[in-house]
Amino acid sequence: MATQRPESGGSRPGLLSRFFWDSDHRYFQLPKTYAEEANPEGEGPLGTKPRPWAKKWWDFTGGDHPSPLFYVIVGSILGVITLLEYWLFTTNLEKKWINSALFALSSAKFFMVVAFFMHLKFDNKWFAKLFAAAFFLAIGIFLATLALADKLNG
């Protein structure tokens, strides 16, 4: 249902109205993102202004629009890392090395999905900061819980 802008009698709308309504009938005046455009610029994995050294890679990944091939390559790398994790699990190396390698590979997968599949690398920086803040807060809660449990267990 379309949101109706309240009558303001020609004067400048108040703070509340500006927060909940605007001329685009959007509820919140969040920054506009490329996702709202049909053919946005700056959608490439290296952002809107690629460094000169990255031009070759930029062209390969489709410039403003990453090609499906680029996503298939990222997906294939994720699949290979998963198989590598399984191989590590079955090896007889020392556990601390296995666990360290597993966490490193898991982190690599995590950041590849966030950066390339979730488009965080080329989305509005507000969203990146918002997610990063919540993510690090979650890490803080995670570590605090473990530390508290460790202290309580002696």
Binding site: L130, F131, L137
Partner: peptide, 16 residues
């Protein structure tokens, strides 16, 4: 993104 941030804390707590 705000919702996903809250979900981070939700699953972070469960994993912890």
């Amino acid at each position: 993104w705000t919702f996903l941030g809250s979900e981070c804390m939700f699953f972070g707590s469960l994993i912890a």
